[in-house]
Design a protein around this nucleic acid. Structure first.
Lengths: 197, 197
DNA sequence: CCGTATCCAATAAGATACTG
DNA sequence: CAGTATCTTATTGGATACGG
């Protein structure tokens, strides 16, 4: 609790799950956090060795925050807590979510059995951030980066893409291109865990 | 975070991991919590359906708090968070711990490889609370209850027992009785995860 | 863009006392 | 024993403004 117990701390760390981010990205993607609290949380995380400041190589040369190895090790637990918590009767999938949170839920919810034998590269575009997800041996491996050589691409706001992938919203509500047969199968790979009471 | 995010909430839920408890037990075992905060946390947990009030069957007929099924499902994640957090450079094993926390760390830290092929029943006495742990197929199954038919028994304060089992403190610092060869092997089954920095 | 400084408001917690 | 009521204090978070 001393490492992760204060308000916002877990959410900040989660945003660093797929690589370094800059201050204003974090501020924008963590709905409702204020600059001073974000600064404080980052410095606490830094002093606890869960996060470190890094400088991107030239020509970018900007300062970013990245999770340490140890910090990254707790990320799967955070993801599992998310899956558990989403079963709450009061969970609201319409709440605005960050792209990190959406991608993480894909990774957490994929059914190895349903993805059996499937191999595919799938790209996601959320505004100016993109991810490539590789399905392999029933797992979904994800990294941030350009969606080159993908069999299928989704583009839209995180919530909308999530609604299509997890909850069967119509493809027309976002932008889907590439192998549409794959798309139809892909959105069946994510069984939602049973709701409570 | 809305389900478990406030201060004390996780600690309260953890105390219910091995069965129902009464109010004053929780108050005594959660170091530093005050009665009003505990009452508030319990009622929040109840309204969120992680905990329910129950009445023990006669002749006890006392009121207790117990975790719901759903509440119990998050306990292994709490345990894993504990293992992760104990690697912190600032983790202090001398801090006073509850018997629940100690038992849970045994369950979490046992090495399946080292316990390979071992079968045993081991009892633990902490004041007036006792547990029986069964080693089987590399796992440690635990339940609260009388230590009947155990091959080995430990008795002492939670911290002291933990020091013996996890950190190789001398048997003489607590009370150990039964199969002493088993005892010597038992305390080798729990490799501590590597420290950070 | 990346924070820091300042201030104010809300709230949450601790201590204590008290009651069925 | 199992809480509730009350009070006081400490913390923290949100808003805003500002500077490198």
């Amino acid at each position: 609790m001393e490492l992760l117990g204060e308000r916002w701390t877990v959410l900040v760390l989660r945003e660093l799950a797929y690589g370094p981010r800059r201050f204003y990205e974090l501020k924008e993607d963590i709905a409702g956090i204020s600059a001073n609290v974000l600064a404080q949380r980052l410095s606490e995380l830094e002093s606890r060795k869960l996060v470190r400041r890094a400088k991107l190589p030239p020509p970018a040369s900007i300062q970013v925050y990245e999770a340490t190895e140890w910090g990254l090790e707790v990320v799967p637990l955070i993801a599992s807590l998310g899956r558990w918590a989403a079963r709450s009767p009061w969970h609201d999938p319409a709440r605005r979510r960050s792209h990190v949170s959406v991608i993480m839920s894909f990774q957490t919810l994929i059914s190895a059995a349903r993805a059996e034998g499937l191999r595919a590269r799938i790209g996601f575009h959320f505004g100016d951030v993109s991810y490539v997800a590789t399905i392999n041996h029933g797992r979904l491996d994800v990294e941030r980066g350009p969606t080159e050589d993908c069999d299928l691409e989704f583009r839209g706001a995180p919530n909308e893409v999530s609604a299509v992938v997890l909850r069967g919203a119509r493809f027309e509500t976002i932008e889907v291109k590439g192998d549409m047969e794959l798309a139809k199968r892909f959105v069946t790979l994510f069984p939602l865990p049973p709701k409570i009471g």
